[in-house]
Every structure is written in C-alpha cells, then in structure tokens.
Design a binder for these strands. Structure first.
Lengths: 166, 166
DNA sequence: GTATTTGCAAAACCTTTGCTCGGCT
DNA sequence: AGCCGAGCAAAGGTTTTGCAAATAC
C-alpha cells in the first residue's frame, strides 16, 4: 500500500524504486525525528537490500523537493521530519534529549513583525527551546506529554498534540 | 595592549600564551560570526606561528569557559561569537548570508511562558529568522542596517545596534 | 532501450586527538 | 625541572561521490 510520503514523491514525479518506497514508508510511519543512521536501520529491517548511501541520497532528494525538513538539534547528526504545513517548533529536554513539538500563533505573528521591522520578509525560521522538566506538582502544565523518549505528537486530529494555544 | 576577550580569559585564570592572545584579539575585533577557518586566517595574518588545531582548541576552551558561544547557521561549520549578557537572536539574509542581530523582550517573555506551559523551565533557546530583504521604499523599516556583509552591530552604547524594542 | 538509481568503497569535510617538542613559571 | 600548551599529522565521525551494475519508466 502506498504510504503518505510515497504519494508525495509520486506527485512530484520522482522515480519510485524499491529503496525509495521503503524509506518513504519508514518516514511515513515515524513519529520522531530520526537521523540517517536510524532511518537506515529501520529501512534495513524492512528490506536489507539498501545501503546507507541510498538513505543519504534519498533524504537529500526529499529535502530538495520540500517533502522533508532537515533539523540540527546538536550532536553532529542531521535529523529529518516530514514537512508540515502549520509550522511548529521544538523543545528539547536537556536531560533526556526528548523532543516535544509545539505551535504558537502569537509567536508566528511576532516573528513576522520583527522581520518586517528589520526590513525583511520572513522566509522561514528556526526556534528551539532547551529546557529542564519541572516537578509535576510545581507547574500548571498537565504533564500529559508522555515519557516515551522523542515522541512527536502532531496533527490536529491526533490526541496528545502539544499545542500552546494562547 | 590587552584585548577585551583576553581580559576575560585572564579573569578566568587561563594561561595566556602568544597564540591565545592572538585569537583573543581577533575575536575581540571581530564584528561578525567567523568560523574556525576564518579565525585561523585572521590569526595567521597577525602571527603565522599558529596552527588550526590551536584555534580549534582555543574556541572550544573559551566556549567551555562561557566566553564564546558556538552557532550553527547551516553550512556544516560552527561559527563563534563572544557571549553577550542580553541574549540576542539572528536574522540571516537568505540571499547574501548577512547576519543581523536583534533582541526582543516580548519574545523572551513569550518563550518563558511557553516552556512553563509545557512543564519545563527554560534553559536556553535558539531563534533564527531567515528572510529576504524588502524594497527599501516598501517597508516601514528605516533601512539603517548597513550593507557591509555580515556586520554585527551590538551593545547598547554602539550606534546602529539593531534592537526591536516593542 | 535509456536515463536514473543503487551499492560499494573511497574521498571529502570538519573536528578532535596522540605524541613530542617548546615555552613559561 | 615541571607543566601545560602548541604543532603536526593521523584518526574520528558524518556525509558525499565515482564508477560499474541494476532498475524504473
């Protein structure tokens, strides 16, 4: 069955090889921000006839096509995630490395206005927060973000989406 | 004469060798965000008896001491700038690569509040805007940011500091 | 059929490190 | 004399690439 990312590839006229299909599936099913090595392992589990060079080539291609976005959270390896329409940002737990996504519409407006004041139109932005977990009791947050490391809840329909609404 | 960065090094008890003094001077005089290669070239111009390994070791040391901050604006090379007290952020001109700094106190507050809502205390953050220059005439900005590539106006006392005050 | 893509291994790239020598205290 | 830092070159980790063989359209 055709995965979501595979559909995007086909839509953009990419030649769909077996390897690309596998990588597309892995990406479609990922709910985190895997690096190339991790993608390679997951892909190899589905089809061992794939090399890491192909994974590198594929993520690069998909990034050029706007299907993936490359992230750098430090640690020397690039990490990838599917491009989303509504931009979101990341909060990285400095103790565990867990990545939490969030959105904030007020923030988007603020960034637009700052760019405009500096004489620029905003093309894109990168916002990453690094934080330390507060005691559950000491905060007003509901603590609903789960403990599975590096989870990436997203999408309005999914339960557990972390969104700061304002 | 003792450069600003050299003073900071001495204050933290670092042994000041000739090479460190040169790197400290280069950093003190830099008004941009040089990478190691660039620092090496500038340092070598002042004293050719310096190796790139020493520059790497020095920036790493100064980063550990909190004197420098490492930045990654993409491009695979780390770039460095002296630590500032008031945190600032960067707007990168996507056409020219020029880096403009800015601050926004409203933004600081917003970030604190977002982190808190997610159940975290904010340790640090990274904000980078990527933008395209608007026509001078079409914007309300005063266009005062200069055309010298990669300028880094900063510090309250300096004219030309780019600061979004709100 | 033909242009593209893959696998493999080598190369490229940035950064770190082992070791010996040199310089400062 | 003793230590710490510097230089050099080699190693390290990630990503890219050249080339021949395989594959999609």
């Amino acid at each position: 069955m055709e995965s979501r990312i595979e559909r995007l590839c086909v839509d953009r006229g990419l030649k769909m090889t077996g390897q690309r299909r596998v990588v597309a599936r892995v990406l479609s099913e990922a709910s985190d921000h895997p690096d190339v090595e991790e993608l390679y392992h997951r892909a190899a589990a589905l089809d061992s006839r794939i090399s890491i060079a192909t994974v590198y080539r594929t993520v690069r291609l998909l990034e050029e096509k706007g299907i993936l976005e490359r992230r750098d959270f430090g640690g020397g390896r690039a990490r990838y995630e599917p491009t989303e329409h509504g931009h979101h940002h990341h909060l990285i737990d400095v103790e565990t490395g867990r990545v939490i996504e969030f959105q904030d519409s007020e923030h988007e407006r603020l960034m637009q206005s700052i760019a405009r004041r500096l004489g620029f139109s905003l093309v894109s932005l990168r916002l990453e927060l690094f934080g330390r977990r507060l005691d559950e009791a000491a905060t007003g947050a509901d603590g609903s973000a789960k403990d599975n490391a590096d989870s990436r809840p997203r999408g309005a329909a999914k339960p557990g989406t972390v969104r700061v609404s304002r």
